[in-house]
Each structure stands twice: as C-alpha cells, then as structure tokens.
Design a protein around this nucleic acid. Structure first.
Ligand SMILES: [Mn+2]
Ligand SMILES: [Mn+2]
Ligand SMILES: [Zn+2]
Ligand SMILES: [Zn+2]
Lengths: 148, 148
DNA sequence: TTGATTTTTGGAATCATTCCAATTTACTTC
DNA sequence: GAAGTAAATTGGAATGATTCCAAAAATCAA
C-alpha cells in the first residue's frame, strides 16, 4: 500500500505525534509519494500518484494530508506566482531553483552560514524568522530532481 | 484625476512605449496609486483607491493595468502563499520583508554585489536569470512602508 | 466492545483571477 | 478634424485551485 522506509516512517510518526496527530494510511501514502520522486508535484499530481496505489483516496484528503505535513514541518509548500502550490519533502534548509524551460524545481543546498549572512543585509530592528531564496533560470541539462 | 510627478509620468510613458503600449488615463491612475503609498496593496485595494478619484474604473481594468505594469517591469508582483497578489512600484532590485504581525511588506535594499554573491551558492551549470529573497519575521515598530 | 475524538470523504462553496464580447478610446491618415 | 483601425476598457460570466461542510469511517483509550 505504501512504500516508506523505516527511517522515513519513524520520521513521520514522530513528527505527527509531536503535533498530537495520528499516523494514518493516507498520511503515510502522501508522504511516501512525495519522497519517491522529489520533483515538487502539485496537489493534483500527488493525488494522481497516490490513487495508483490507494484508489479510494480523495482529493480533499490529499489537501488535508499535505497541509498536515506542512504544519509538521516535514514538507514545504512552494508557490510560484499564481500557480498551484507544489510540495517538497526536503525538510532541511535549502533554496529552490525553477527552470524556466522545463518547469522543474531543483533543491539547492545552502552553505552553513547562509541564513546568518543574508540576515546581515537587514536594517537594524528587523527580527527574522525565515528567509526564502528562489532562483529562476536554466538548470544544467540532464539533471534529475532526485539527485540534489 | 491622477497625481503623477513629471518624472514618474515620463518613466511610465517610456516604459509603455518601449513595449508598444499606449499611455491611458487608467494606466496612469493605477501607477499613481501604487506610487503614492508604497505599501504593496492587493488588486482590490488598488481598485478601491483608484475608484476614489476615478469612480468609473472597473476591476477588470485594474487587473489589466497591473498586469501591464508588471510586464513593463515598472511594478513587481508579490505572492505570499495562496494570498491575493500584492504589487510593488519599486523597480529597483530589492528584497521583501513580511511582518507576521501587522501583515505589512517592507522593501529591503540589497547590497551592490548581492545577486552576484548569492549566485555563487549554485552548483556549476545553473544559469540564473532572477533571484528572489523574502524575509519573514517582525519589523521594527513605527516604521512606515513609504520610508524604505 | 464502547464511546469519544480524529480523520476521511464527496460534493458544494469560495474567491482571486481570467475570459469574453460589446463599447469606448487612442492614434494615424486624409 | 472627420474617418478608419487598432488597442484598451468595461461588466459580467467563467475558471480553477483550494476550502468548507456534514456525514461516514477509522483510531485510540478505557
Ligand atoms: Mn518541493
Ligand atoms: Mn510591492
Ligand atoms: Zn525543496
Ligand atoms: Zn518591493
């Protein structure tokens, strides 16, 4: 029904219970779908992939699960202009690169001191909680989104 | 009808004609509204402000004009999660800071070498066209959005 | 097993934005 | 400055991702 490594499964269970939420088949399935191909799919795409292995899952549930995973900090929601949200199961700090030609989004590893150093550009008095960096341009050819 | 400095007016006219577009009362009005209070209003807010001085303008026109201004690179469109787009008439390179408490967006001046230096974190082969930086947190109290 | 609480589900509702066809306006040419 | 053509504006309908809702199903503790 799902394909979720033991470590991913316990990562999920811990994050859910930390938020006082239950581990369900649907939540596991959605998380598994995201981890399998780290290509930043939309809710509709997640729905399609989840249905292949869990045909009775509903779109509403996909939205619910994605929202839950985002709130547990297991998944990030990405928004480009007014397009449908995309979802990223990479819970580490990283930037995103959107390829203008193929429409794909690549995760970009950030240097250790990045948040600290970029925060220096703020005038005195600004207290930063989060920094988001998004690149747009052309990614190198033949690069798999799973590889980053 | 509109309040647009001579320099702003010619800035607008030049950008429009550069794109082969006409300068209209509505486009001038929308641009004037944005310049008057640089607080990153939504299309609805722009509509409300424009109607005060041009009561017959339509919401469709506001959307059209905003889109036109964005395409002329006179205005930037900002998107936060799934909220309505906001618009910024600051055409220079800058970052944005969203205050989580008051919901306001502040323009953040970027250092000269910023784009160049942040681009260094990309692996070889990525060709950058644009970098977007967005901060979230708490802005200093009593700061006017027009002042930045 | 029972009962209380969450979660899932299908479908309706939302709402920012886009689309459309008709009217008006702007620019060019005579 | 009248006429013709292209571009822009307008009100209202349509769109579509997302959210909402109330009923059914699943989970958990007792
Ligand atoms: Mn992603
Ligand atoms: Mn803005
Ligand atoms: Zn990512
Ligand atoms: Zn701005």
């Amino acid at each position: 029904m799902v394909t979720l490594s033991n470590t991913a499964k316990s990562h999920l269970d811990e994050a859910l219970s930390r938020s006082g939420l239950r581990s369900t088949r649907q939540r596991e399935q959605i998380y598994a779908v995201l981890l399998k191909r780290r290509d930043h799919p939309t809710a509709d795409e997640v729905y399609a992939r989840a249905k292949e292995v869990m045909p009775t899952i509903s779109l509403a549930t996909v939205y619910n699960c994605l929202e839950t995973l985002v709130e547990c900090s297991l998944v990030k929601r990405l928004n480009y202009e007014r397009e449908p949200s995309r979802f990223c199961p990479n819970d580490g700090e990283h930037a995103h690169f959107l390829d203008e030609v193929n429409g794909r989004v690549y995760d970009i590893l950030l240097p250790e001191d990045f948040q600290e150093s970029v925060t220096k550009i703020l005038p005195d008095g600004f207290e930063v909680k989060k920094v988001k960096v998004t690149f747009t341009g052309y990614a190198p050819k033949g690069l798999d989104t799973n590889s980053l």
